[in-house]
């Protein structure tokens, strides 16, 4: 077990190094100093800017310095605001976390419920409805769903406010949360259905039925528990997609999280800020997945050995 744990953690560190190197290279093409100062800047000030950004050093030195700063929690300074990127991200974590966690919660609960209902009566209208709605959910990118929601629930029906943060009232959370939840919900529903049908076809379920248990009991106690394994994997994997989705959703709903900061940084090519937000998202994702893997290792010995 210790062996498994160590191996897993070591490999994660190896992957994170790769992630950091990729992130380091996120910068506009050509000379970033020139891009930032504009074409009319004289060469002396461009040179000064290059020095300030550390671009005058050879590449390996730059990467080394980037990693050293990173280990100390320093992601550099935003070019647009000159504020520390780390600070900006940290103060925006709560807003994004609130949005992402409530969304994944809703998506998981409703998704499993829908998937189980569909598997309870496969090939009936409930099933068909679930499958086709979820196909629609998968086909629509989050930002399009967001805009359509703003249009119908915000502008036409005026049920919910269409932009703003939760500090103005809980109703401000509704549209961004639901928008963000749609895609993972659709996928979780499909996975749950498929997994449920798979488990229901297995011998031990037949045995449980044969020994006279009610089908509801077989369904909920014996089948559901085993069917949920792939669902857990899907949920943890989709958490990352959801974090990426916040980039668009936070912009559309003017939600002051990390995604909105990233969106604004991309428009201004503020690359330290872009690097910071992308890195943050990737690290959270790797962390979530590693923890999920470790938990499996504890629960399921088969995972440890493979």
């Amino acid at each position: 077990m210790i062996n498994y744990l160590l191996r897993k953690i070591l490999y994660t560190i190896l992957v994170l190094i790769g992630v950091v190197v990729v992130t380091f290279f996120i910068r506009p093409p050509g000379d970033p100093a020139r891009v930032l100062l504009g074409q009319r800047a004289d060469s002396a000030s461009v040179e000064a800017m290059r020095e300030q950004l550390g671009l005058d050093k050879p590449l390996p030195v730059q990467i080394g310095k980037y990693i050293i700063n990173l280990v100390q929690g320093d992601l550099g300074r935003s070019i647009a605001t000159n504020r520390s990127v780390t600070e900006t991200i940290l103060e925006r974590v709560p807003a994004t976390a609130l949005l992402a966690l409530t969304s994944i919660f809703i998506a998981t609960v409703l998704g499993v419920l829908l998937g189980v209902t569909a598997a309870w009566k496969p090939n009936t209208w409930v099933d068909t409805l679930t499958l086709s709605t979820s196909l629609l959910g998968i086909s629509l990118p989050a930002f399009v769903v967001g805009l359509l929601f703003v249009l119908f629930f915000g502008v036409v029906l005026e049920w919910f406010p269409n932009s703003g943060y939760i500090d103005r009232g809980i109703e401000y959370l509704v549209l961004p949360m639901v928008t963000l939840a749609i895609r993972p919900l659709a996928i979780i529903a499909r996975i749950t259905r498929a997994s449920m049908l798979d488990v229901l076809g297995q011998d031990y379920v037949r045995t449980a039925r044969a020994k006279g248990l009610s089908s509801r009991k077989v369904f909920l106690k014996h089948a559901l528990r085993n069917a949920l394994n792939p669902v857990v994997t899907t949920v943890s994997a989709w958490f990352a997609g959801l974090l990426a989705g916040t980039y668009f959703i936070e912009f559309i709903f003017n939600w002051p999280g990390i995604g909105l900061a990233a969106f604004n940084a991309i428009e201004k090519l503020d690359y330290p800020m872009i690097q910071g937000t992308v890195l943050f998202t990737a690290v959270v994702f790797v962390a979530v997945n590693t923890v999920a893997d470790l938990v499996y290792g504890f629960i399921d010995p088969k995972v440890r050995l493979s």
């Binding site: 990426a244 980039y247 992308v278 998202t281 994702f285 790797v286």
Partner: peptide, 13 residues
């Protein structure tokens, strides 16, 4: 480790 859309954004930058 990167959500696809973020990677696309990163490479576009």
């Amino acid at each position: 480790s990167f959500p696809t859309i973020l990677l696309v954004v990163a490479f576009s930058v």
